[in-house]
Design a protein around this nucleic acid. Structure first.
Lengths: 344, 344
DNA sequence: AGTGTGCCTGAAAGCGCTTGCAGAATGCGC
DNA sequence: GCGCATTCTGCAAGCGCTTTCAGGCACACT
């Protein structure tokens, strides 16, 4: 049981009394091999518990069955749901997924791309809002461009601006607008928005989609009505507290993310404000758990797993003509118990 | 921009007019190199956007900076939380994580280990209950043994029986017992348990810890009080529906998993049974979201992220003496709003 | 001046595998 | 029974990198 090096193809070949080449061919099923030789090789391999060295295979020309996925935080239900879709498609195609969590550190994101590049991953998926930072964009492009030039596939979910690569894009703006419309229809006229950092494209799109629709109906959303906070459950929680200190008195709160809405709901409950009695609350994404909240959350349902699946598929299929493809997936407003007409 | 092969070290060396060896040494900082040569190499590398081929490096003897993690489903908040801990430690140590989701398919689990073995991952982490199946155990051992013999590290979270490897084990039995004690103290005497498949060690431990403690206090738990269902949110939901058709009339329900408890809570609400007014409900794990439910869920809090961190640390540090190490982490009962004394 | 002593640098040997190419073995037709 | 078309099989050339080993050079010492 002492640590000894791995079993190599050569040992298998020797033990089966055939050449390296033949052993390789048997194990890869490339060419026909006389059946008795084939049997000898197969049984030798299983006896020695042989596993090919994927590195050697990759080096020798075989293509690499791994793809890289970079997201902000696996434990965020939004990414978790997308990752689930990614995993399924990857699994179905016999691909191994290298998943990296950046914990929202732009620097790390680039570093991971570099590592994935070194691994010669056949594709890289970037999931979640990018950073709107000139410097960062350049550094990212400096990694991605050579990667793609070398034949690597890149696909992104939910970040449009920076990179011209295959993209799966949820219709944030339209979804938010539809939500605004539904909320107006319920009778609300005074809103507050719990937003994440404005520099994130996702936040921006949802926010402007929402406020533009409001404006179109003659309802103004001022800076005072917008509370900026971290893009997390705790951010939503804090945002409500902040909102309550302001003079604005909304009848309806829109959290740009379900995860933030979850924190918001708890903060409201703790503040003794009943939902939807005294205040309506809506989110965005339709993360699985929000239907189990009390009250269940009104939100814009995004096909999260599908986002992941489609992105993976884009990456696997590879780009044809050169133009990058953009796949837009629309969300759907789902009215649940957390919204109701405002109190008179 | 046509697809051309990757830039190699040789090109860098040529462009810097030094030998391959020197270029390699500069880029790895192994030996001192005259500073003018070093500069030439560095700038050549960056100009060509050179990235070392990790496969070649691995083949040539450098060790591989990747670890493999296998879990049932990334989108389950339980795994997501653990994965978060894993990711953090991995990131801090410059490791790339290959994450695989088996979707609870035993066959796939073994297949993934095999792929990870081929990748020469320096460590493999198995997260979540194993399968109690003689056949499966053998097949798994057949993969793992050669892997470890070849110097691979293996660590598991939360599965004791099958494999004698480094283990991080939450104290399921003790936690469940402590929960039982707390629930008894509230005055409950008639319980129901929503369990997952009995073949999972986790289910077994929690169930028996709970019922043994009950028995010790003279409260019997019969088979009729135990509802078996899938280990998911929907399983919990279905289990409550099933429970309500039975003649037993518990005052308190214990779901062996928070995720199941979430489904259970919704099912109870839809059945018009108030929690904790008419029925108390408790879970296990303390997944982040349960504190945001209404009412917040009473549960046994496990240090989920820490489970992941510790497992990763075990794997990184590697086994010394040969004996496998077992790290036990205890849970703590957290009483929240979902439990109350039973109605008289 | 002769010889050590260090420090760099480059040539070359692999790491384990795939695959083009040529040679061996087999089968067929005449 | 001979020649040739067909298969198989084995040799050997890499894939891109690390690392050992020896050679080169400058400098200091006797």
């Amino acid at each position: 049981m002492n640590a000894r090096p791995h079993v190599t193809l050569e040992e298998v070949a020797r033990s089966a009394r055939v050449s390296l080449a033949t052993a390789s061919r048997v194990l890869n099923g490339t060419t026909n091999v006389r059946s008795d030789l084939r049997d000898r090789v197969v049984s030798a391999a299983s006896e020695l518990a042989y596993t090919p060295n994927a590195h050697a295979q990759a080096l020798a020309g075989g293509s690499q069955p791994t793809v890289g996925v970079i997201c902000h935080d696996v434990s965020d239900p939004y990414f978790a749901a997308i990752a689930r879709g990614v995993m399924r498609v990857a699994g179905d195609n016999g691909l191994l997924v290298m998943l990296a969590s950046t914990f929202r550190d732009p620097h790390k994101e680039i570093e991971y791309v570099s590592m994935l590049r070194a691994q010669r991953a056949s594709a890289i998926l970037l999931i979640g809002s990018g950073f709107e930072d000139r410097h960062w964009e350049q550094a990212m492009a400096a990694e991605l461009d050579p990667y793609r030039r070398g034949g690597g596939q890149v696909a992104v979910v939910s970040r449009h601006r920076s990179l011209k690569v295959d993209t799966v894009q949820p219709e944030n703006r339209e979804g938010a607008a539809a939500l605004a419309k539904a909320l107006l229809k319920l009778g609300h006229r005074r809103f507050a928005v719990l937003a994440g950092p404005r520099s994130m494209t996702t936040v921006n799109d949802r926010l402007s989609g929402f406020s533009d629709e409001l404006a179109a109906k003659g309802v103004e959303l001022t800076e005072d009505d917008i509370v900026e906070a971290a893009f997390t459950r705790d951010g939503g929680y804090a945002a409500v507290q902040e909102m309550l200190t302001r003079k604005t008195k909304p009848t309806c709160v829109f959290a740009v993310t379900d995860v933030m809405a979850i924190g918001a709901l708890t903060a409201l409950r703790e503040a003794g404000i009943s939902v939807p009695g005294e205040m309506s609350l809506a989110g965005f994404d339709d993360v699985p758990v929000v239907r189990d909240l009390t009250p269940p959350l009104t939100t814009v349902a995004l096909p999260l797993e599908e986002l992941g699946e489609r992105a993976m598929e884009l990456a696997i299929k590879g780009a044809r003509g050169g133009r990058s493809r953009i796949l837009r997936l629309s969300g759907e407003v789902v009215l649940r118990g957390s919204t109701a007409p405002p109190k008179k």
